[in-house]
Amino acid sequence: MKTFRSSSMSRFTRIPTALSNLLVIERQRLGDERGFFSRFFCTEELADFGIGRIAQINHTMTQAKGAIRGMHFQRPPDDEAKFVSCLAGAVFDVAVDLRPQSSTYLRWHGEVLSAENARSMMIPPSFAHGFQTLTENCELIYLHDKPYAPGAEGGVNALDPRISIAWPLPVAQMSERDRNFPML
């Protein structure tokens, strides 16, 4: 039987992506016959990954498989870092680099986040973010380093051919707002 022990070792594994500053974080799980324990967030350990202060926490639930939410962002100076995790179900989580000076401008990275794989995306400021549900009844939690600023809100159309996100499923649902975001 495994026991739960504290240790000075990090409970997070950093997985780099092809987009500068965009990270996948894998949380270590310690388990036994009862289930598991996983450190979800630690200011000290995750500050080096791009988020240390939490100003806001949001929770979403999407019922339909194949639904797309996004691609949302906040404009500077209110652009924000987000730490996104899936608590129930599975999603294809996507971030798009909107930094014009970046060598990866308008490139995207997608990652399956699920309740089972204990992965999160650490999305830096000036990236658009969205996801497609791969199962029914998906719940996500977002930790933001800045509070929501309505006047700074923006979006990019998730179906924009210039970005060409390879969504894994046919689009089952999108909000009218997300559908009406501009093409680039």
Rank of each mutant, 00 (worst) to 15 (best):
A149C: 13
N117I: 02
Q132G: 00
L134C: 14
F131L: 14
K146M: 08
Y148Q: 11
C138Y: 03
R119I: 02
E136P: 07
N117L: 06
S114M: 04
Q132P: 04
L106F: 15
E139N: 01
A118Y: 02
G110M: 02
A118Q: 01
L98F: 10
E139Q: 12
V94A: 03
E116H: 10
A118P: 03
N137F: 02
E116K: 12
Y105E: 10
S102Q: 08
R107L: 15
G130W: 11
I123D: 01
F131A: 07
T133P: 05
A149T: 13
Q101V: 06
G151Y: 07
S120A: 15
Y105V: 10
H144K: 03
K146S: 06
G151P: 00
V112P: 11
L140H: 01
Y105Q: 10
L143W: 12
D145C: 02
Y148T: 09
R99Y: 11
V112I: 15
S103I: 14
L143D: 09
M121H: 03
V96R: 10
K146V: 08
G130D: 05
N137D: 12
S102F: 06
A149V: 02
R107Q: 15
A128N: 10
M122C: 11
V94E: 07
T104H: 15
N117C: 08
T135M: 12
S103V: 14
N117Y: 00
L106R: 15
E153D: 15
A128M: 03
L113G: 10
A118H: 12
T135I: 08
P150T: 15
D97K: 13
R119K: 14
F127G: 00
F127V: 00
E136L: 01
K146F: 05
A95K: 08
A118C: 09
P124Q: 05
A95M: 00
A118S: 15
Q132A: 05
R119L: 06
I141H: 03
S102Y: 05
G151F: 06
A115E: 10
S114N: 03
G151R: 13
A95W: 04
M122R: 02
I123M: 00
S114I: 02
N117D: 09
M121L: 13
I141L: 13
D97R: 14
L98V: 12
